[in-house]
Simulated scan of single mutants.
Amino acid sequence: MTTTRLDTRFAETRAEGRAALVTFVMAGDPDHTTSLAIVKSLPGAGADVIELGMPFTDPMADGPAIQAAGLRALKSGETLTKTLHLVATFREEDQTTPVVLMGYYNPIYIYGVDRFLTDAKKAGVDGLIIVDLPPEEDDELCLPAMKAGINFIRLATPTTDDKRLPTVLRNTSGFVYYVSITGITGSATPDFSVVGQAVTRIKARTDLPVAVGFGVKTAEHARALAANADGVVVGSALIDAIRKSLDAEGKATEQTVSAVVALVSELASGVRGARVAAE
């Protein structure tokens, strides 16, 4: 593969001596227009990489917060076609911030793999995280995505032992996403010392950046993980900020976008302060 936006962005943050802040929000939550405004606001607030959830009716790896966000998005009429349009609209103003789509294979399969990859590349998608496609199924989407110039990012978990790790890493590109806890998103706070050891173990096997996610809720969490990882992923905390800003009917308010911006700014300060504190 040629150099991608993800490669460039992680090289930039590495040169700055810090981890990247990777922010996850659900496409279409709480509605398409507000979701686009949120995504557009993320880079200015300090996000280095944007993960955009693809709403799905059976999100088995997601905790209650992200499940609810997906349901809000589906209720508002979000589709995979609209999500790709959201990325394309974002790209009209931002040509440098990497955008990664995260979700499940079923919507892509129904859309059609070849058509999806063509449309995703045209829209400006840089990477995919598909949580229910193991390495044994790389022919389904991973290899075609890489051929299309889209990074395929694999998850490693606390149960990924040294025997399994090479298989996980084999066709991974962009970065490795280390899931810091066993379980669903947003379910617990990680043990930072244990995560640091795991990141070191993965880095010994690959030159790819390693980003850590699941359970990151505060700037202090982000700062602790950024001391060892190349990236820190925050999702459920941002989804919670959106939820708390909604009115009694679950609709966006004037505070919705600003609530996300405020939290991302705090998290960015945590990530950016980690390496300074370590020096």
Rank of each mutant, 00 (worst) to 15 (best):
V168L: 13
G231S: 06
N151V: 00
A262T: 06
R201Y: 06
T157E: 03
T89W: 03
P64V: 14
A88K: 15
D119I: 05
V276N: 09
L84D: 03
N171W: 11
V234G: 03
G250C: 02
G235R: 12
V25Y: 07
A88T: 12
D191M: 05
Y178M: 13
Y105S: 10
A61W: 01
P166I: 09
V271Y: 11
S35V: 08
T4L: 06
A268G: 15
P135W: 01
S258I: 11
A27Y: 04
K203P: 05
E12M: 13
L225D: 04
F10M: 09
D119T: 04
V99E: 02
F10T: 08
G270M: 10
N151C: 12
V264Y: 00
R201G: 07
G17L: 03
S180C: 07
S41R: 00
G44D: 00
G231K: 08
T2L: 14
I242V: 15
R201E: 14
M54S: 07
F90I: 07
A61E: 02
R243K: 13
A278P: 01
A188Y: 04
T218R: 11
P166R: 08
D94L: 00
A222T: 14
L208V: 01
G46T: 05
G17P: 04
D138H: 08
T81A: 15
K251T: 12
T83G: 08
Q197D: 15
S173K: 14
I108Q: 02
G53H: 06
P43G: 00
A47T: 01
A73R: 08
T8K: 15
E140S: 13
T57R: 04
D114N: 12
T256A: 09
V179A: 07
E12T: 13
P166H: 08
L71M: 14
V194T: 15
G63T: 12
I110M: 07
N106G: 10
L141A: 03
A278Q: 14
L238P: 05
D162W: 00
T81M: 12
L36N: 12
V194W: 12
L117G: 00
E136Q: 09
I150H: 02
L36M: 09
V233M: 05
L42R: 00
K203H: 14
A204T: 11
A73N: 11
D126P: 02
G44C: 00
V179S: 09
D132A: 04
P158T: 11
V276C: 10
P98E: 09
I110S: 11
L263G: 13
V100Y: 07
G44M: 00
T185F: 10
